[in-house]
Amino acid sequence: MSRDLANLRCALPIYTVCNVIAIVAITLLSKLRLDVASFGAVFFTVPLLVVGALFTRRRVMGTASLILEVLCSGIVLSVVVLLASYLAISLDRPLVDAALADADRWLGFNAFDIVTMVNNMPVLSSMLMYAYSSFSLQLLVLPILLIVLGSPASAYTLVLSYGLAGVVASLISIWFPAVGAHISYDLASQRLPSVNLYYGYAFLSEFNAVRANSEFTLSLATAQGILTFPSVHTAVAIICTVASFGQRVLRYPVLTLNVLMLISTVTHGGHYLVDVIAGIVVATLALVTTLVIARSRIPGIVALT
């Protein structure tokens, strides 16, 4: 086993467990309550994955063990990021949409003009909608494909970088809550038959409720991605592209998909351009941190894994 993989294989579960402990403690002290029944599938699946990973590791079933490990950490970190995002927005700090829109104007960018242009290209608009919707599917499928294709270190890089980026984005969003460009520019009132504005508005009821209510119950059935700055979709697009670039069979399909996802963050996700820029910065920091962890020299780490 390579040192990179050994380091990441140790770091990912440690990071996951530490985040679970922290997020549970913070949630208990917050106004957030969980609809436990709605998380039933997670509570059932994760222990099975843990048992399966331990069993296959003892049986020296390398590929199966790696897949089960990244799936387990990926699912848990996705829940952690979801909870962290709701906790961040629940602090009900003043909205910063005006400042974000001003920053876009300073950069010479107008989201309304871009959405209007895409509205005149129905085929492109549909492609962008599918690309934006691929967020969860990429996080689930790409790590498995990378392991099967012989790049397990890249799979661990993807999952750990996502976990880092999601938590950092949640922390940043405490001071930058925003409803996004679609709502800010009132795009729902415009004639845009080719652009599906679902993602730019679907989160609004959850966003407003978790801010306004003295106690808020989070159900996995109705949960939404409620962060706008930084854009987590952008961070995931960058992370998935970088993690997959070493595999020729994945390189260009994933690159194409995530270029479309980057564009769709503005056209279909309701993000400002500065959200996207911030998402790129967060993804870069997460990937660099993961690279440092992978290249670290920790005596005995290969033997431990």
Rank of each mutant, 00 (worst) to 15 (best):
D186L: 07
H182T: 06
S173R: 03
F176Q: 04
A165L: 01
R191Q: 13
I174W: 08
P193L: 09
S189E: 12
V168S: 04
S184M: 10
S189D: 13
V168F: 14
F176V: 13
L192Q: 08
A188Y: 12
Y185P: 00
A169V: 04
A181K: 00
I183L: 14
A165Y: 00
S189A: 15
I172K: 04
W175A: 15
L171A: 15
P193E: 06
Y185W: 10
A178S: 15
Y185M: 13
A169M: 05
A169T: 07
A181Y: 02
S184Q: 13
I174P: 00
V168C: 10
A181C: 05
G180W: 03
I172S: 05
Q190Y: 14
D186Y: 03
A181P: 02
I183P: 01
D186I: 01
A188M: 14
A188F: 11
F176W: 14
L192F: 11
V179G: 08
P193T: 05
A165I: 00
G180V: 04
S173M: 05
A169R: 04
G180C: 07
V179W: 03
A178L: 11
A169Y: 00
A178K: 06
A165D: 02
Y185H: 13
V179N: 04
R191C: 06
H182R: 11
W175R: 12
W175F: 15
R191F: 14
Q190L: 08
P177F: 08
A169D: 01
I174N: 07
V167H: 00
S189V: 06
Q190M: 11
I183H: 13
G180H: 06
H182L: 09
S173F: 01
S170K: 12
P193Y: 09
S173A: 15
P193N: 10
V179M: 14
V179T: 13
Q190T: 05
Y185F: 14
G180R: 03
A188R: 15
L192V: 09
S173G: 09
I174F: 07
A169K: 03
F176C: 11
R191A: 13
G180S: 11
R191G: 01
H182S: 07
I183F: 04
F176G: 00
A181L: 01
I172L: 14
S173H: 06
V168E: 01
Q190V: 03
I183W: 08
A169C: 14
A165K: 00
G180P: 05
A165P: 02
R191S: 15
I183T: 10
H182K: 08
H182V: 08
L187C: 06
G166H: 10
S189Q: 14
I174M: 11
A178T: 13
G180A: 09
F176N: 04
V167S: 08
A178F: 11
P177M: 12
L187G: 03
L192K: 06
L192S: 08
F176I: 08
Q190G: 00
A165G: 01
